[in-house]
Amino acid sequence: MPNLTVLESLNAAMAHELEHDPDVVLMGEDVGQAGGIFRTSQGLQQRFGSARVIDTPLDEKGIVAHAIGMALYGLKPIAEIQFSGFIHDAFEHIMFCAARYRWASGGQYSCPMVIRAPSFGGIKGGLWHSQSVEAYFVHHGGIKILVPSTPQDAYGMTIAAVRDPDPVLLVEPVPLYRALSAEVELDGQPIEIGKASVLRQGDDCTVLTYGPIRHWVAEVADELAAERGYQAEVIDLRSLIPYDIECILSSVRKTGRVVIVHEAPLSLGYGAELAAVIQDKAFGYLHTPIQRLAAPDVPYHFSIGDEYYRPSRDRIRAAIERTMEYEI
């Protein structure tokens, strides 16, 4: 198996789909000749031609809206938004057109398309280049949301997203693009959408997380086990819509304690929904209040955001300790 970065895995998955399905096209700002500003699509235009790997005008709304038309006609577009911080201009088209066409046409039309949203902080990108926008897209059905955080997931989720019959938002982990590599099985197989990964088993506390910081959470959990004997079960949700309720509940029933960690803002963030569902379905199992660790409801700070806006290792550790040591 080749050792690939997250970036190379995304590239390999797109190349695989472009090669095996003539209806797949990739479009976005600078994705063609330049191979994307991160080089995610490097070499793809040279290989598949400029009619299928398309440099577009600088217009996020236009990219997504034209991809919708392509999907209505029978193509399977992969539309890249250069940074998720620029996705909001396309919000109406993602949520009220792509995610609604099947329903609003009585099932006559559908919009099978992928919207790639390079996301998350940690690259000294400031407000517009560090955003975690996923919660905006959770509010109503019609679109699936996947968050790969390993090279294999980046590969398998991209393939799953391209082949899904409905629109999929692929929330890509920018800070991991080149920072993380691993052996990847290039089997051309999609991962199953809606399944979480248990990164670390434990009986004391369930930590639910997703995105790049899932690696910090797992590391901190290992340290706490060694130092304090707290055995945390760490779950990478991987898929936000739909999410793996069975995996979550079976863990919560076992541990009775829950910490939710994400780097999007706190209020009405994804953790709010998880907390509500868990108390609804597993109230009798809980020993402590569900705790959320998230970014504050403020903009992403340029010079100190990477250290203090995102949940740091120290704060993750403190959150798990607080839950473990909670007294009524």
């Binding site: 038309g69 006609y73 193509l75 057109c97 039309y109």
Partner: peptide, 30 residues
């Protein structure tokens, strides 16, 4: 009505202009 190749508009006026353009572009690509 899809059976008649008539695509229903998305209700926000004008929102379907690029959808139509994208569909036409897709036909050209295909």
């Amino acid at each position: 009505d899809r059976r008649l190749n008539v695509v229903p508009m998305t209700t926000q006026v004008g929102s379907y202009i690029p959808h139509a353009c994208g569909a036409a572009w897709a036909a050209k690509i295909k």
